[in-house]
Write a protein that binds this DNA or RNA. Structure first.
Length: 922
RNA sequence: GGGCGCGUAGCUCAGCGGAAGAGCACCUCCUUGACAUGGAGGGGGUCACAGGUUCGAUCCCUGUCGCGCCCACCA
């Protein structure tokens, strides 16, 4: 006996354990020999993270695909695993240390700290995996990987060394995005632009050789800046070469206030006459654009900050040699106003050393104001780069870092998408991909962190780098190079987390070894991910995959939307609008959550998730459960060898036909990644077709005595239920698997998860047509009943009905009586006096209700129908009256319109007749 | 500044060249033996606006107005 109610919380865990215990999700099992492979690699969640709504959506969609393909007989590998998430994880552990007032990572030292992180990974690493299981993810957990496990680390090492030797990884000194809080470089992608309200300061820089006088503009030049504190590092003032205002100043010098450094006024197209004063201060060490301008004019690069963006007592000065190479070194500060021909560097003015950049800003503005060097201060809004993790303002900072020549690697990656080897779904994301890939910048891959893959580079005493697989190898290279045993020190830095993620599609399959899995499952079939990591991850997997495997990593890239809260805001912890998927699973069951996400996953639009919607799909699960109970109560058992093609009963043929249509549409939708269409179609079938109509239609049969008809109906009910469970299983795996078990009257041949997907079913056109008529008739009668508030059973008279209709009515009498609450059905030449008359397919169905109905109301109802018929006729006539339409529109469209006209005319005639009759009765 | 997308029923959204759809909400009726987490019925939309293409436009094109996102930009 099936339980009265379905309790997800009591069922889901048990079901999942059954799947795991039977190895249902194992790829390459004996049952799959000879099967076509289908593979998806999971976007690896952060190992110490927990499941959020984005994961829930992402993994639901992957699971739908995997379960669908598995049931279709493919050898499915859904490759799971987790990411070490360098910065994020290191931050979490450091915070923990701080909260527990334990020594920080620097006090602990690298080794002890890493031990601590591994411990945290061991403690919390299982959380996300268990949460994915609660969602129902059918990953092959026996193959779970971690980006820092032995094998993947080997892949990372191999890739780094190979790219280095090919010249595609190199070390370079240039400005990077420096995070002064985390004390590491980050890539362009980890920088977010935040609109910030600030000020624009207009500063007066006195011109050399003139006595500064605030009242006399010829004695100074005004530069506008949002970062006055960086003026300490200025090495030029740039104006546009065509700017008449400043033409005669080009070549002259200004004396940098506070510092006294003499710096030239240069002409450079970078300067925009429209912005600020048209003259711009050039601070090559602290601005990306200024860096370029500085290089063009061979200006020195003066770094004024330490790693935490606090003012240095003595500046670091780098000089430019050539335009590409930069050398850096400490120079002594020189005297203010040093001799012509040389640039002075200057000491930091008294009392500023160690000030943080924002404090320095205040101080410097104050000091400039004192000297009357601030012309004006305007409020100003601009976008300021922030670290995506630390949320502090990023400082452009001159350091040595490792880079990947992304431009080179991008070429084949662009071509592969151009040539359609890899397809984005929806397609418009390809444009985003191309735009980024085509102007891709060198990828900064070194991070000044500890948690991650340490860079396999060792340095000799002169700073020369030896990149090798092992320290011993590097040592022997170095010894050879120096001609003697030489002490090396290892590069302290680790690689960007995304470096190892970029290898995910092949590293998880065993690369660099030539494993059978790699051969079988690469390239993977599909990648399912959010648009926010197209650049971070998808693009880089394309680059690495093509470079090392010489083949695309995946055929399709399905890009899904973001899950937002019910009002459309991005979910974030700080806003407190995060909906926890686990809480929804607790409340409504994993199936309801999954179905909600799938049903809302329309391409190209974000998902605004509301709990109400989840509740609705919980109700859907309940509905399904009860339908199965009903079937069981009525002895509907799976019949061995049942063949839907051999059914004789119209109603059975009808539901089978509806199922066939649904099946076909669901398959089409899934082939196109239209998850919402697939889900909605199934929903409609289960609720509207199977429950609302089919089960209601068959009640009289099932409640009646034994007969061939009854047997066939019982078998069909069970058959469609079983097929329906299969169809629904990819979306609602738990309840369907449970029902598959509890409805079994004989042992099932397999778990539902491994059952065969339904075959293309038969279509009975005649039955379909006939039942459509019955439904229309019943609906029309019900409508009138409800509108007129008639509860009692009433007779039905078919007025002037055709032989065919009369025969149909006879065949369906029992059903019509029951579902429309009709007492008896008869035929007559015309509708009885005072009856309500319905037009169904051009024929009149009359309900003799004299005395019961409100004649005025009925008149009004008919008048309304008449208006509608007139409108329909008028519209069709307008079309058909248009010679252009008749001559130019396709023939079948014209035919269709003619038929519509006939139909509307007939309907109008019937309604008019009915009105006449009614008036006659009054 | 460059790009992408969205304005359709009260709300959330499908549809995207041939008679406007769903779910929720709302209103009316229904404790019938699967299910009140239910059943039956109903109201509600010049498909943002203006032009254009077409025999025909919610759908294609152009523009306008709103809204969102991505990329670039510390004057």
């Amino acid at each position: 006996m099936i339980d009265k109610t379905y309790q997800p919380s009591e069922v889901e865990g048990r079901i999942y354990r059954t799947w795991e215990a039977t190895g249902a999700f194992r790829a390459g099992g004996p049952a799959r020999v000879g099967a076509q492979p289908y593979s998806i690699v999971i976007p690896p969640p952060n190992v110490t993270g927990s499941l959020h709504m984005g994961h829930a959506l992402n993994n639901t969609l992957q699971d739908v695909l995997c379960r669908f393909e598995r049931m279709r007989g493919k050898d499915v590998l859904w490759q799971p695993g987790t990411d070490h998430a360098g910065i994020a994880t290191q931050m979490v552990v450091e915070r923990q240390l701080m909260e527990r007032q334990q020594p920080g990572r620097r006090e602990m030292g690298r080794e002890a700290f890493l031990k601590r992180v591994w411990k945290w990974k061991a403690e919390s690493g299982g959380t996300i995996v268990n949460q994915l299981k609660r969602l129902g993810a059918s990953c092959d957990w026996s193959r779970e990987r971690f980006t820092m496990d032995e094998g993947l680390s080997r892949a990372v090492l191999k890739v780094f060394v190979a790219l280095y030797r090919e010249g595609l990884i190199y070390k370079d000194k240039r400005l990077v995005n420096w995070d002064p809080k985390l004390l590491t470089a980050i890539s362009d992608l980890e920088v977010v632009q935040v609109e910030t309200k600030g000020h624009l300061w207009h500063l007066r820089y006195p011109i050399e050789g003139k006595t500064f006088n605030a009242e006399d503009p010829s004695t100074f030049i005004v530069v506008a800046t949002t970062r006055p504190e960086t003026m300490l590092g200025d090495t030029a003032v740039a104006v546009h070469p065509d700017d008449e205002r400043y033409k005669k100043l080009v070549g002259k010098n200004v004396i940098l206030p506070l510092v006294g450094r003499r710096i030239p006024i240069i002409a450079d197209e970078y300067s925009d006459p429209e912005k600020g004063s048209g003259a711009v201060k050039i601070t090559p060490a602290h601005d990306f654009n200024d860096f370029e301008v500085g290089k063009r004019h061979a200006r020195p690069i003066i770094n004024i900050f330490d790693q935490q963006a606090r003012l240095l007592p003595k500046f670091d000065v780098a000089t430019v040699t050539g335009t590409d190479k930069v050398q850096i070194g400490h120079l002594r500060a020189v005297e203010i106003n040093d001799p012509p021909g040389e640039v002075g560097y200057g000491d930091l003015p008294e009392g500023l050393a160690g000030l943080d950049r924002f404090a320095a800003r205040k101080q410097i503005v104050a000091r400039l104001e004192e000297k009357n060097l601030v012309e004006k201060t305007e409020p100003h809004t601009n976008v300021v780069p922030h670290g995506d993790r630390s949320n502090v303002v990023i400082e452009p900072f001159l350091t040595d870092q490792w880079y990947v020549n992304a431009k080179k690697l991008a070429e084949p990656a662009i071509a592969a998408v151009r040539e359609g080897k890899t397809n984005f779904v929806p397609k418009n994301w390809e444009k985003t991909y191309f735009e980024w890939m085509e102007k891709i910048q060198p990828w900064c891959i070194s991070r000044q962190l500890w948690w991650g893959h340490q860079i396999p580079a060792w340095y000799g005493p002169d700073g020369k780098a030896f990149v090798a697989f092992t320290e011993a190898e590097a040592q022997s290279d170095a010894d050879m190079h120096y001609g003697k045993k030489t002490a090396l020190t290892r590069d302290e830095d680790v690689l960007d987390t995304w470096f190892s993620s970029a290898l995910w599609p092949f590293s998880t399959l065993g690369w660099p070894d030539e494993t059978p899995e790699l051969k079988r499952f690469y390239p993977t079939s599909a990648l399912v991910t959010g648009f926010d990591i197209i650049f971070f991850w998808v693009a880089r997997m394309m680059m690495m995959g093509l470079h090392f495997m010489k083949e695309i990593p995946f055929h399709d890239v399905y890009i899904h939307a973001l899950v937002r809260d019910a009002s459309g805001a991005k979910m974030s912890k700080s806003k407190g609008n995060v909906i926890d998927p686990l809480a929804l699973i607790d409340d409504y069951g994993a199936d309801a959550l999954r179905f909600t996400l799938a049903a809302m996953a329309a391409q190209g639009r974000d998902i605004k998730l509301s709990t109400q919607r989840v509740e609705g799909y919980r109700n859907f699960a309940t509905k399904l459960w009860n339908a199965a109970r009903f079937a069981e109560m009525n002895g509907c058992a799976t019949a061995a060898g049942f063949d839907p093609k051999t059914t004789k009963e119209t109603i059975n043929q009808w539901i089978i036909t509806q199922f066939s249509n649904t099946l076909a549409q669901v398959e089409l939708a899934l082939a196109d990644y239209r998850f919402n269409d697939a889900a909605n179609r199934i929903y409609q079938f289960v609720w509207n077709f199977y429950c609302d109509w089919y089960l209601e239609f068959t009640k009289p049969v099932l409640l009646g005595g034994d007969s061939v008809t009854k047997q066939e109906t019982q078998a069909t009910t069970a058959y469609v239920r079983d097929e329906m469970l299969k169809l629904l299983h990819p979306f609602m795996p738990f309840i369907t698997e449970e029902l598959w078990q509890v409805t079994a009257t004989a042992p099932r041949q397999s778990l539902l998860a491994l059952a065969d997907w339904p075959d293309k079913g038969p279509v009975f056109a005649e039955a379909n047509e006939e039942v459509a008529w019955v439904i229309e008739l019943i609906t029309a009668i019900r409508s009138v009943r409800a509108e007129m508030n008639i509860t009692a059973a009433i007779p039905l008279v078919l007025a002037g009905a055709s032989k065919e209709t009369q025969a149909r009515a006879e065949r369906w009498a029992e059903f019509i009586k029951r579902l429309a609450r009709v007492s008896e059905i008869s035929s007559a030449a015309s509708a009885p006096q005072g009856s309500v008359q319905l037009v169904v397919r051009g024929e009149v169905a009359a309900l003799p209700l004299q005395g019961v109905i409100d004649l005025a109301a009925e008149c009004a109802r008919l008048a309304k129908e008449m208006t509608k018929a007139d409108a329909d006729i008028a519209r069709v006539d307008a079309k058909l009256g248009n010679a252009n339409f008749v001559s130019r529109a396709p023939e079948e469209v014209v035919e269709e319109e003619k038929e519509k006209r006939e139909e509307a005319l007939a309907r109008k005639a019937k309604v008019a007749e009915a009105l006449e009759r009614l008036k006659g009765a009054t």
